[in-house]
């Protein structure tokens, strides 16, 4: 993937580096965080390094590490479906003491701006666990529209039950940067 740097009012988003592995490993072993992520397999540091190396080789994916000043606080990952001109996005603020400050929204809006204006995408979509009410609200506020509910779409390794998934999207013509 290409190395990219994006900036917003308070945050810097840059393409993931191998040296980010310790933070990612800590987040992906925290059940409170991975409870609502689609990947839930608690990597070791070695395994996470391998995953990052694989990601860096990929052509259609990009993972941004989110920095507040110089502190790594979260990530946002993007996958581009070129032939259909759309992208899917995901992510989390992994540092829990930074929750509630609107960083997730700010990061997502920055990535959306990049995807629509720079990458000329027509559609950006995301999946959110139906139980993840807080994230759902944030996505709605950003401008994502609910498109449907896929029943029992996720087997949740943390809560040991099937969870419904909400599909949301925003189209280029709906996106206006505030």
């Amino acid at each position: 993937m290409k190395k990219i740097i994006l900036k917003s009012k308070r945050l810097v988003l840059r393409t993931i580096k191998l040296s980010d592995a310790p933070e990612y490993t800590r987040w992906f072993n925290d059940e409170e965080i991975i409870k609502y992520l689609s990947t839930q397999n608690k990597p070791t540091l070695e395994k996470e390094k391998k995953i990052i190396k694989e990601k860096l080789k990929s052509k259609d994916k990009n993972t941004f590490t989110i920095l507040l000043k110089n502190k790594i606080i979260g990530f946002s990952s993007v996958k581009i479906f070129k032939s259909r001109n759309y992208a899917s996005i995901g992510g989390a603020i992994g540092e829990k003491d930074e929750w509630g400050n609107g960083y997730g929204r700010e990061a997502f809006e920055t990535v959306l701006d990049y995807l629509f204006k720079k990458m000329k995408m027509n559609r950006v979509e995301l999946e959110v666990y139906e139980d993840n009410k807080r994230a759902f609200k944030v996505y709605k506020r950003i401008g994502f529209k609910k498109e449907g509910v896929r029943r029992e779409y996720h087997w949740n390794l943390i809560t040991k039950k099937y969870d419904n998934d909400i599909m949301m999207s925003i189209l280029k013509r709906e996106w206006k940067k505030k």
């Binding site: 032939s83 259909r84 001109n85 759309y86 027509n122 559609r123 979509e125 529209k145 498109e147 449907g148 509910v149 896929r150 029943r151 599909m167 999207s169 189209l171």
Partner: peptide, 16 residues
């Protein structure tokens, strides 16, 4: 279960 808007491009019409 729902409708994914403009999520594909028709190989015939080339439209979303």
């Amino acid at each position: 279960e729902g409708l994914r808007r403009e999520s594909t491009v028709s190989p015939v019409t080339k439209k979303y």
